[in-house]
Amino acid sequence: MTEEKRYPEKPEKVYYFGTCLIDLLYPEAGLAGMQLIQREGIEVVFPQDQTCCGQPAWNSGYRVEAIRVAQHQLDCFNEDYPIVVPSGSCAGMMRHHYPEMFKGSTDELRANTLAGRVFELTEFLEHVLKITLEDLGSPVKVALHTSCAARREMGVATEHEALLKQLSNVELLQQSRKEECCGFGGTFAVKHPAISAEMVSEKANAITATGADTLISGDCGCLMNIAGHLEYQEKQIDSRHIASFIWERTHATER
């Protein structure tokens, strides 16, 4: 679905767009992503004025409100550095929907330029930094839920898996119907809670059935949804953003 993507040479500096969900709920995941990049000798710039990519309003039909927020991000990330985003969903918004959002407006060029610089974290680690990971953790079984945006919009499902496969003590288990949506869908979960509940409970059951100790996802929306349900059901499964998971298992290599 996605066009052939070209990746830049390893840069000296990158921007980091932390996403609003990570900011409030999973800051350690955001930080882990930054540390992974920094460990490769790259300066990570985190503009303090960043807020949200605008997706919640955009997907709810409130375009004027979304554009206003997106415009603000155009201001925050105006230098020519790659922008790394630890979320397939928010990266997809900035890479694929910003051009559409600003089409015909005075910000069109800025939006297109920014969109071209956006990379989802795992593709950046894999293709730009060509990161090698040394697993220092004890053996663990994991299940990976790749978000729909990471899979279909950003096309980075293989990158998620490739990174996990570098970790020698991690066994990646396959849940049934793993390509299927977890039922979050932003405001979908609020507007159609019954359908969402059905979807998340099936997803959680499929993950539990693998016997995994930890659920991993590259998107905090899915994580909040599935882990929230697992917790509600009092299932003993940990959940981690992929950045946290990788960082926790590899960071002692740096002394």
Binding site: G30, Q35, Q48, G228, Y232
Partner: peptide
């Protein structure tokens, strides 16, 4: 309806904005 089938999300003690500052990540 969110918490009819899920636990409420856990809000962090500090935001990523704060952590980034604390860890010395540049703003520009």
């Amino acid at each position: 309806p969110w918490t009819q089938v899920r636990k409420a999300p856990h809000i962090a003690q500090k935001t990523l904005h704060e952590l980034a500052l604390k860890e010395g990540f540049n703003d520009k």
